[in-house]
Amino acid sequence: MAEVLVYVDHVDGAVRKPTLELLTLARRIGEPVAVALGNGAADTAAALAEHGAVKVLTHDASEYAEYLVVPKVDALQAAYEAVSPAAVLVPSSAEGKEIAARLALRIGSGIITDAVDLEAGDEGPVATQSVFAAAFTTKSRVIKGTPVITVKPNSAAVEAAPAAGAVEALNVTFSEKATGTKITGRTPRESTGRPELTEAAIVVSGGRGVNGAENFAIIEALADSLGAAVGASRAAVDAGWYPHTNQVGQTGKSVSPQLYIASGISGAIQHRAGMQTSKTIVAINKDPEAPIFDLVDYGVVGDLFDVVPQLTEEVKTRKG
């Protein structure tokens, strides 16, 4: 069976969920061979094996943390040459897309980004994408070279599928260009203790209607009662009420949770672009004409300062 290269996104050896989803998709096309780089690379093996990786190629060097993107491209290319895979799958993070694109160019292949589904086809893997702010769904293929495809979080279920997961050291020689962009400082993001926005089953978002940084406590309280992640519209982020990392939309995160609750958000096209594919959508807005109501399964026309706290209380009571 053909091998499929899967680029592993991990933090010091802890594999992030989108990579496990990639393994599910990779198994539809062939046998997953994972590539894990940097600090803790070898520690990823157990989780990867449990989810279907037949092999885990690992390599650690200080270059991965000290220089931007290119060392990782060099390593992925080395893995590509060692394995000659039928496809290369990479998580659709900002960095993942850049790594994938440069690899595609080097190996003479086409690239598809932000797939939301992947199936085996007669002429190679078929990627589903959601385009024009999710107004259209397309199906595409790479028609030259080995398909390089980046896949968005939440595109497949994580499935246990134990495989050998044999760890092998990857041989990497860094290119002359690898040290072109130096990372001179790094401030890790502080954990909020809440689920990752892109991975959460429930997202509770606030917009301009929240009217102040201090009022976001209301949104957080609802999120915590549901075990949800917190999102924000760009208007709320631009006003400085909530961090940019939590922005949902075209220039923020794309989310596709089971439940999305929008409070004080009008539903501009750029916001929709990042949440329109959520399974169930709920909105609270005092303007009955707000375009967000075109998307909802359930909407409450009202003041969020009344509705949201009442909802939070009711959730707590029901959960006991």
Partner: peptide, 25 residues
């Protein structure tokens, strides 16, 4: 290097329930 085989318009979401908050929203 890539080919789009099909593009389908996403079906409009079915109209949801909308209630006005009268104190119990």
């Amino acid at each position: 290097y890539t080919k789009v085989d099909s593009a389908t318009e996403r079906p409009a979401r079915t109209a949801g329930t909308i209630v006005k908050d009268e104190g119990e929203g």
